[in-house]
Design a protein around this nucleic acid. Structure first.
Length: 281
DNA sequence: AACAGTACCTGAACGC
DNA sequence: TGCGTTCAGGTACTGT
């Protein structure tokens, strides 16, 4: 399930199969995603050479030689499946229903890549050569880039009355965080998710930037090391064992050494937040 | 301009 | 077993 680290893991898993390869065949099996597939998707993909794959926020971009880019978002339930000859007896997890295979394509090496998304919140679109895409236009800094500095986050929080939880989910402030890693980063930083973003001291915001970097870096490392070739036996990419300190741990003891608190769940903007009332202020 | 609420969709887990 | 309810890792849109 895709926040930045999961998308990065999916990206790294796809790279060896796609970069430098030509898409020999493509199918759009179900065009009615939340945003309909572009009508010329199959035409543009067929015969296209994938020059490079990269990530921006939770989006994956496949740069196509002379044909612009393919833009992909996994939404809440999107998955990428890989099948190839080297894999031998491919066995798909029976919970991943073929009726949710929306886009399928084959490289000229015979590898099949499938975008499967039960809830259809994911998105596949094309970006014309030299064009930009509106969905990428207003994204904030990449949290693992040099552009994500304490000064940037301090400025972005200034004057904001909304809870810091909500502010960190705003992709214009910082790109790629989702519900899990916001809770995790705020716990590490000792900041109450209900606190107004504009009322956090500069030093604490500066520390928060470091914790955001750390938790994302650790999650990417966990994804990369726990899954050989980033792929499970079922061919599914991007799933790995998480080690959350607070997310989905309501009632559990606070993992901070010496803290007597218990993890609490609250709802903010209709989404769960997990935190320790003892050590997050 | 910032913010809250709603909408989009399916499936898994839970309570009765 | 079946049925209803609630919840799920995202983001765009609308209205105040």
């Amino acid at each position: 399930m895709p926040e930045l680290p999961e998308v990065e893991t999916v990206l790294r898993g796809l790279q060896p199969h796609l970069e430098g390869q030509v898409i020999a065949r493509a199918e759009a099996r179900r065009p009615d995603l939340r945003w309909p597939l572009p009508p010329d998707l199959v035409q543009v993909l067929t015969g296209a050479r994938v020059v490079a794959l990269r990530r921006r926020s939770k989006y994956i971009l496949a740069e196509l030689q002379d044909r612009g880019s393919l833009l992909l978002h996994l939404g809440m339930s999107g998955r990428m499946l890989i099948e190839d000859q080297a894999q031998g007896g491919f066995h798909r997890d029976p919970a991943i229903l073929p009726r949710h295979d929306h886009v399928v394509f084959w490289t000229d090496r015979g590898t099949r890549i499938t975008f499967n998304d039960a809830r259809r919140f994911g998105m596949v679109d094309l970006v014309a050569p030299g064009a930009s895409h509106p969905l990428l236009a207003h994204l904030g800094p990449e949290p693992l880039s040099d552009g994500f500095t304490p000064e940037v986050l301090i400025a972005a929080f200034a004057g904001r009355r909304s809870p810091v939880k909500t502010a960190l989910l705003d992709q214009r402030i910082v790109a790629g965080l989702g519900n899990i890693y916001v809770s995790e980063a705020l716990h590490r930083a000792g900041i109450d998710p209900r606190r107004a973003a504009g009322r956090i001291g500069a030093a604490r915001i500066a520390a928060l930037t470091g914790h955001i970097r750390d938790v994302l870096t650790e999650a990417i490392a966990a994804g990369g090391s726990s899954l050989r070739d980033h792929r499970q036996a079922t061919g599914e990419l991007g799933y790995f064992q998480h080690a959350f300190r607070v997310y989905d741990r309501e009632g559990a003891p606070c993992p901070r050494p010496g803290c007597p608190g218990a993890i609490r769940r609250i709802v903010q903007s209709a989404r769960s937040s997990y935190f320790c009332p003892q050590c997050q202020k």
